[in-house]
Design a binder for these strands. Structure first.
Lengths: 278, 278
DNA sequence: GAGTGGTCTAGACCACTGT
DNA sequence: CAGTGGTCTAGACCACTCC
């Protein structure tokens, strides 16, 4: 976008949409309330139905309303967001040392969905691929080195919609001594990635999460069953072993309307002899 | 969104947009390349110009293309993202104990923008407000208690666009013994929030970052100078003192096309006597 | 069946960009 | 200037929901 020049009066669709947004934010329209019908808006603002439609479409893109297709559009309820905490990393590491009976089929990703594990469709596929430049530089390996790639997907069979999705990469050098890792029958990885790395003698010392967000493609929108105007959180997790070497990259997507990422940072304590006022 | 019923053939605009996206993802169209003109798309797909326009608009909403208004729309270059790391929390805490000369006007938010500090427009306003229910429950104080609110904004004077924005809340009980905190002339807070809290005898022990994302409103889009299809990262930072009490909440927004949030989690080491295979 | 929004058309006008 | 996309109109058809 270029710097502003002469201000232009906002187009009609924007004015209508903003007016509706204000009504929503003030509480005149509460979550679940229907919006005025298109023809009603068109009449009130003495504009065409097409323009009124665009106003509605705008609010949809911004994620404030939902519905349509026969139904009146309604104010979107602020959805409950499932929290994904960074404590999970420590928990997964602890889990890797527990006996296999207890690890069992305890997949970390599934347990906080509130859906019984046996009602979900897992799928995970492995293959080996050459890394591109961006992956190679993060994993600190040669360009076009081979990595084990694992694509993981979790689908709710009742709705057909995706609940979780991630791709992870581990340098093949690190895992080839344990062929079990390459066997798709062992899904979901019992105990998770941390345990898998343990079987080849790797202890993860720290985890870096890189977070950004983009809009989903239309294909993603259908796979996840997303409303319009819902961004995707894109998270790259880099696991680093205790010697400081990156050992795994995992790219995961989360719909932003139902996900909150929570990160806790512990700070070092101040020495006791500090000046109480700088 | 409801579960899928009978599949509906995707509308024409979506088909056109998807075709273009595939061309972009395959590399047939590179960043900066212009897209076919609307009338050209309409001709190729034997559809109306309006429909072709919608296809272009769709790709814009998804953040893949930019431009327009006289210019041909071009494939959006993946923008360089400025990293905001959780290491910043420790750094700010360390800074609070350094002598005031060195703290000076070192604002944490500004230093990584690559723009000289004296070329930027700060603004910070204080007031005291009653907390709503959501803030009260996080700060663990009574509903309608008073808090010190600080709204911070940073604007690039050359473009007029916003570069940073946040609101933070501190319970008034905690700060009333240091009236300096209420003086707007002391901006930007020398040494940051950590130092301000130090002056009233509070040491921050941990910081929790809650991250989600939503689409910007049209007003935000103009304030920040955002392209279409760019989500906003919404971050709530909760500072917790060494006794476990929440002492500050800060809500900050970051445009997702130019921001990457990075969080590092240190894990406890395994004991030496561990079984190498579970 | 009546009413809704979603898609699509055809065409007009405007603001902006390049030359 | 001609060419571009953005806005807006008027009207048609369809899929869907609710009564």
């Amino acid at each position: 976008m270029e710097p502003r020049a002469t201000p232009v009066p906002p187009p009609m669709q924007v004015r209508i949409a903003d007016d509706l947004r204000i009504k929503i934010e003030r509480g005149d329209l509460e979550a679940g309330d229907p919006l005025p019908a298109v023809h009603e808006l068109a009449r009130r603002w003495s504009t065409s139905e097409g323009t009124a439609r665009s106003a509605i479409a705008l609010l949809k893109q911004q994620g404030l309303i939902t519905g349509g297709r026969g139904r009146a559009p309604v104010v979107r309820a602020r959805p409950v967001r499932v929290v994904r905490s960074s404590d999970r990393h420590q928990a997964e590491k602890d889990l890797a040392l527990t006996p296999p009976e207890r690890r069992g089929r305890t997949g970390a990703a599934e347990t906080d969905m509130g859906i019984p594990l046996d009602r979900l469709d897992f799928s995970a596929t492995y293959d080996t691929v050459s890394v591109d430049e961006s992956l190679a530089s993060v994993l600190n390996i040669d360009n076009e080195s081979e990595v084990l790639r694992r694509v993981y997907e979790l689908v709710n069979p009742e709705t057909g919609y995706r609940l979780a999705w991630s791709v992870s990469y581990i340098p093949l050098d690190l895992v080839h001594e344990n062929p079990e890792l390459l066997d798709s029958k062992n899904e979901p990885w019992p105990g998770g990635t941390m345990h898998q790395l343990l079987t080849v003698g790797i202890e993860v010392g720290s985890v870096v999460d890189e977070v950004s967000a983009t809009m989903p493609t239309t294909a993603e929108q259908h796979l996840w069953g997303l409303d319009d105007g819902v961004p995707m959180l894109r998270v790259r997790r880099i696991s680093i072993d205790i010697s400081g070497r990156p050992v795994e990259i995992s790219d995961a997507d989360y719909p932003a309307d139902r996900t909150e990422l929570r990160f806790t940072t512990q700070l070092r304590k101040w020495p006791k002899s500090r000046s109480a006022n700088g």
